[in-house]
Design a protein around this nucleic acid. Sequence first.
DNA 1: CGTTTCGTTGATATTAATCAACGAGCGTGG
DNA 2: CCACGCTCGTTGATTAATATCAACGAAACG
Lengths: 245, 245
Amino acid sequence: MGITLRETVKDGDLICSPHTPNCSTCTSRHLSVCAALGTEELVTFDHVVQHRGAPAKTLLFEQGQKADFVFSVSEGTIRLFRLLPDGRRQITGFAIKGDFLGVALDETYDVCAEAVDAVRFCRIPRSSFVTMVDEKPHLLRKLHQIAGRELHFSQDQMVLLGRRNAEERVAAFLLSHRARLSRVMTCSVTIPLPMSRSDIADYLGLTIETVSRTISKLAREKLVVVVPDGIRLLDVARITELAGG
Amino acid sequence: MGITLRETVKDGDLICSPHTPNCSTCTSRHLSVCAALGTEELVTFDHVVQHRGAPAKTLLFEQGQKADFVFSVSEGTIRLFRLLPDGRRQITGFAIKGDFLGVALDETYDVCAEAVDAVRFCRIPRSSFVTMVDEKPHLLRKLHQIAGRELHFSQDQMVLLGRRNAEERVAAFLLSHRARLSRVMTCSVTIPLPMSRSDIADYLGLTIETVSRTISKLAREKLVVVVPDGIRLLDVARITELAGG
DNA sequence: CGTTTCGTTGATATTAATCAACGAGCGTGG
DNA sequence: CCACGCTCGTTGATTAATATCAACGAAACG
């Protein structure tokens, strides 16, 4: 918690990753907006896309800042959050491989984005992207579909934050995070959690202590096992029950 | 609270309002998606649009139900909510004049919609609307813009539900609701609140009692005055301060 | 190797929920 | 028209959940 104001990442700070030389070979190609692009469009895309990497804790952009780029995450985890003036933080989501940042195409970012662990992503100047979107209705259609999914997700999250207790929140988090991860990797029951307890707390509207206690309780009841940087689910059925509805 | 399962409104239950014979004379015309339509397109629109009215407490559609229509609200207030199996309810928003229901164009509704007071709205078969959207990129663009606004709003709401206390929630609700109303009517300081305390509670993730006590507290401090079916703001500046950030 | 961060656990405080009672308004039916 | 039952909002008393404060060990880090 607390406001951590670092410089937003500059071009020079970014490690240019050699692993994704172009969009055609990109492993998140079929996961992201890019899935809506034809082979030939992908080439156009390649010309404006910048492949980048950044170490943990890098601030990618800040809420209110001019939105110069839209992003597609190719590796690692990014926390998206809002800050209140007094430092309270609400994490609105964790972006992983295949996630697109900037769906709304707003002129300014409406959240802060920070690398949780080492990340790789590609970014496209928003102006170029907007131009493409304006020219290609099917791209806009894809974008809108993603927006719809996010809208659906935020409703889930409102229910969680407004009406669920600590145990339900943690259980629901583990399951939904697992579901999201399963789209991009095989992780049947052991869920990697690169984010800290503090991140989870700020995501679930709880305190670090409550998250820790709740996880300990689940572990005591043999529903999960805490492993380094992750949690292994022992009884998915019971956890689903706890998450409730 | 508690699950209220009534029949979803049927065609016969709906009072066909004589006040909005067509889209060209519609007073919400420039507020809704319709704002993206040209004069000629509006005529096409007119052919598929059904103008309807419904009394308070009418269930317009239910979460999970096949989404046969998209809606545009022309009068009154509609509560949108999710229900948990045990009856807990989270209201995700109040739709008022000019609001569009079904932005995501999903095949099924992801929330329930219920008339708070007497409402008027027009509905369009989703299939017709989707066809129009597919043909007219600028309509999709408009729709996407609306989705972006809603996304932004749900982030606000996540912060409210996850990180704000009762007083901040109530203050923020009054202000944001006023801001929304101001787009469609003049209501400088006296905010009409057709919804019950229970609705407000389920919107803010609180109980009826806490909402009532908090409003009483604001009234005791002379920041607001409770009036029949509404609240008058006496000290917007202080309330803004309380709402915080 | 000291220092800091992180996660955990315990003790206590505080907020909001729950339980309960009551009065006002409203519609219904005698 | 009045009496009755109902819903709604308010307020009070109490409880329960989670936050806060505090301490500690282990891991991570310079």
